[in-house]
Design a protein around this nucleic acid. Structure first.
Lengths: 193, 193
DNA sequence: GACAACATGTAACCAGTTACATGATTCT
DNA sequence: AGAATCATGTAACTGGTTACATGTTGTC
């Protein structure tokens, strides 16, 4: 069976710990937005095909609350496939940033409108930064608390760190741009011949 | 007619200067990868529908070389639609970063394999950084050279600057991660119980 | 004459979203 | 009884890619 990127994302999530479709959905929404986004409606069918291909094993867990959940774990084949894929090189990230397309058109707006936009963009990325930093702080605390908890693994630590640096970089760009634009006169000036 | 994001990307590109489908393809590939990627096969049909909707006007230009090109410019309606869209808020960027998914699985690899990966990732982003910095330098030079060239517009300057900061941030993360991983022993250590 | 660069387009396919649909358990 | 949360799934649609297809002009 031919696997696409989403399949590998799910194998990667399950490799960290056995997870259900619901868990994977939450995990991606909370910690994966800066490298992979997916809705539950694409996740469930993908899990089914991974199980059919023998790369995942599932077990019904009658959860404490809500309806029983299907908990997936990797089969040895699944782990092999994942490991093999991880060792291949990949291309550059692909980003769809509608906000930046609008930035490209800032010359159509007034200075005040531009400032408004940049402030809103800054707030969004700053919120993400605060969130990620909170996650990292909590992880560091529980790691320091004792060796009884699973020791922090390298992969999740690096990707979280990447999320923090990415958000910080975006906030910095907003600040720099705001400083530039605020130095402009209030109304756009026509090119004085 | 209902427009999607790609339509607005194209309107934005054409607003900067009249462009053909080929121009837009090149422009996005060279300067737009960090906020919007698109193949020519999605661009040409989108241009056709924009023209049919009266948002673009086209003229046949018998180019100096190659077959004649269809040069598009904005109609007043097109400009209106674009301006209106630009002033609406957008959501956060969406990124698909297969490399980071692999980073997530670094615990499956040996230290040397991890170092190899990080060095390759670093090289890719460093190359992009050098390229963008070159573009910016050339722009600054021609801006300084004389007022005969069109004065640099805010939008393109800010998006290019964003590309530089994004690439730099990724390179920094690679360096930080490499420093961390190089501090580890050569073979992964089992948890000493 | 072959190849590279310029230039535009179509068709088949794939991956994803939005919206729809269902069901269990707990809390108020 | 109703709402919130947990949990899983399907169907219709959208937006995109890969591969196919074509034609011109200039260069080796």
């Amino acid at each position: 069976m031919k696997l696409n990127s989403l399949h590998y994302v799910l194998l990667a999530g399950i490799e960290q710990e056995p997870r259900s479709g619901y868990d994977l959905t939450q995990w991606l929404a909370r910690l994966g937005q800066h490298y992979w986004a997916a809705e539950h409606s694409s996740i469930y069918p993908a899990l089914q095909s991974l199980e059919a291909a023998g790369l995942l094993l599932s077990s019904e867990e009658s959860g404490l609350r809500g309806r029983p959940r299907k908990l997936y774990r990797l089969s040895s084949q699944g782990r092999e496939r994942l490991k093999c894929w991880v060792n291949e090189p990949s291309g550059l990230p692909e980003t769809r940033d509608e906000q930046l397309v609008k930035v490209l058109c800032f010359d159509l707006l007034s200075r005040d409108e531009i400032v408004g936009h940049l402030e809103r963009i800054r707030a969004q990325h700053a919120a993400k930064l605060v969130y990620y930093e909170g996650v990292m702080e909590r992880r560091n605390e529980s790691a320091a608390a004792g060796a009884n908890v699973t020791p922090e693994r390298l992969g999740p630590a690096l990707t979280l760190r990447r999320g923090i640096l990415a958000a910080r970089s975006y906030v910095d760009w907003c600040d720099e741009s705001l400083a530039l634009v605020r130095g402009f006169p209030s109304q756009p000036v026509d090119a004085a011949g």
